[in-house]
């Protein structure tokens, strides 16, 4: 390998899936000029990581789902470049949103009224969209996104098992304490739904021994005390007698046991 060929390989080791190879390594070992250059531009390449990351506003998501809804109703099928598109799209989206609102209002009124299947369908579509957003956000790498996903979960039906299961997974496994805490709170509506209350209660009990962070342990204990969940008593008693557990948490477990009496 000569210097010219080596130049095109210099960034290879910094790009996922790219490999610089043995020839490149051998060339660097024997060429000080390339070695210096490789180290210099490699450092510059890495420092690009430090540039502030721009985040879109929440409007982007809002507008996307409005656009998708409008498109699905066949109102956004016109060929439009950006600048011309938006004034028309805004009207279309506004009209679609108004239709959606009317549809939802009537949909809630008629519930499962089979005589108005299109309204029931519309309502179900919106529910599915919310579920999709909540689940998808809770899968993201960024903790702030996962937190937003947890917030979205309040907008789904509390009978939605899939979202409930994802919240439980978040409580048990999310590496971020704030996200775990938010997920504990977000499980509350599910304990009030006939479809999910048993599963939700059991999930909270089972989450307790998995937590090691005192603040999350206390949040779970408070939740179980609030539910007066007596099935949690054996685990709470174990915690009270476990000297390895934070003393504040043990006191809280003791308090919860008294409250359940």
């Amino acid at each position: 390998m000569n210097c010219e060929q080596a130049k095109t390989q210099m960034l290879g080791g910094t790009i996922p899936g790219e490999n610089q190879g043995e020839e490149f390594a051998a060339h660097l070992a024997s060429c000080e000029t390339c070695r210096t250059e490789s180290s210099r531009i490699g450092a510059l390449w890495q420092s690009l990581d430090l540039l502030p990351v721009e985040e879109p506003s929440g409007k982007v998501r809002e507008r996307f789902y409005e656009m998708l809804g409008a498109y699905r109703q066949g109102q956004a099928s016109v060929t439009m470049p950006v600048k011309q598109a938006w004034p028309r799209m805004i009207w279309q989206v506004a009209a679609a949103a108004a239709l959606l609102a009317v549809g939802l209002g009537i949909g809630y009124g008629v519930r499962e009224d089979r005589s108005r299947p299109e309204l029931v369908q519309l309502r179900e579509e919106v529910a599915s969209m919310r579920q999709l957003v909540a689940l998808s956000l809770m899968q993201q790498q960024s903790a702030s996104d996962r937190l937003r996903g947890v917030s979205w979960s309040y907008q789904v039906e509390p009978s939605d098992e899939e979202v409930m299961n994802q919240l439980v997974t978040t409580v048990n496994h999310d590496p971020n304490v704030n996200v775990r805490l938010a997920a504990v709170d977000a499980l509350r509506p599910f304990t009030g739904s006939p479809a999910t209350h048993l599963m939700a209660r059991n999930a909270v009990i089972q989450a307790l021994p998995k937590q090691t962070t005192p603040i999350v342990q206390v949040a779970l204990i408070d939740f179980l005390a609030e539910l007066k969940e007596r099935n949690a008593a054996p685990e709470l008693r174990r915690m009270v007698s476990d000297p390895d557990i934070d003393s504040g948490v043990r006191k809280r477990a003791e308090w919860a046991l008294e409250r359940m009496q």
Partner: peptide, 22 residues
């Protein structure tokens, strides 16, 4: 199944935004 576009939106809209801002 056009609603599935939401999955792709959630995965890629931030990266696209950064591309355009850059």
């Amino acid at each position: 199944q056009v609603a599935r576009l939401a999955v792709l939106f959630e995965r890629h809209h931030r990266a696209l935004f950064r591309y355009f801002v850059s």
